[in-house]
Amino acid sequence: MRRPAQEHGRVAQDVNAARRREIKKTAKSNPAEHGLPFWVWSLVELDGSLISDKADVA
Rank of each mutant, 00 (worst) to 15 (best):
D53G: 11
G9N: 03
A58R: 14
S29C: 03
V15F: 02
S49M: 09
G35E: 15
K28A: 12
R20W: 10
H8W: 11
S52M: 12
V57R: 10
A58P: 01
A17V: 01
A27E: 06
R3Q: 08
S52P: 00
N16P: 00
W39L: 08
L36V: 09
I51G: 01
D53Y: 04
G35I: 14
L36A: 08
S42C: 06
I51A: 15
Q13I: 07
S49Q: 14
A18S: 12
A58V: 12
E33L: 12
K28F: 07
L46S: 05
W39H: 07
P31E: 08
D56P: 00
G35S: 14
E22W: 02
A17F: 00
H34L: 15
S29R: 01
S29E: 05
L43D: 13
Q13W: 01
A5H: 07
G48E: 13
D56M: 10
E7D: 07
A12N: 03
L36F: 08
S49N: 09
S29A: 15
V57Y: 02
N30S: 07
R2P: 08
L50A: 04
T26W: 01
W41M: 04
A18C: 05
A32I: 11
L36R: 12
V15K: 00
A17S: 08
D56E: 14
I51W: 07
P37M: 10
L46R: 03
V15P: 00
R19L: 10
L36D: 11
A12M: 11
R3H: 07
W41F: 08
L36I: 07
K54P: 00
R20F: 11
H8M: 08
E45R: 06
